[in-house]
């Protein structure tokens, strides 16, 4: 192991680093779970209850499948947006502070 790696392993023990990784990991995992549930739920709905998706939404031609499918697309964009918003606002600054601290 070279000296750099030793320094990095020291950083791994730093409470501030550990807190960042835990917070970011929890966010990423929850958002991944939401996407999985949303999409696989949609796929299973298609597999098991086709009539529901084909049912008319408001008496017209538009079916329930349209807003539900649209919802999955918007969910994907929204979850991505939530992650980027939090990462840009919180995590980047925290990483920069940790790296600066480690350099000293």
């Amino acid at each position: 192991m070279d000296q750099r790696d030793a320094a990095l392993e020291l950083l791994a023990e730093h409470p501030r680093y550990r807190r960042l990784v835990r917070r970011r990991g929890r966010l990423a995992l929850s958002l991944t779970a939401l996407m999985l549930v949303g999409y696989l739920g949609y796929v299973l709905l298609v597999a098991f209850d086709k009539p529901l998706l084909a049912r008319s939404l408001a008496g017209g031609a538009t079916s329930w499948g349209i807003p539900i499918g649209l919802g999955v697309i918007l969910l994907a964009i929204a979850l991505t947006g939530i992650y980027v918003y939090r990462a840009n606002r919180e995590f980047d600054a925290e990483v920069a502070a940790i790296v600066a601290e480690a350099r000293r």
């Binding site: 995992l29 991944t32 999409y39 999955v72 994907a76 979850l79 992650y83």
Partner: peptide
């Protein structure tokens, strides 16, 4: 087409 989209959030998070 939805199947092709939902991989992107996963790429970002992981």
């Amino acid at each position: 087409s939805i199947g092709f989209l939902v991989g992107w959030p996963i790429v970002l998070f992981l």
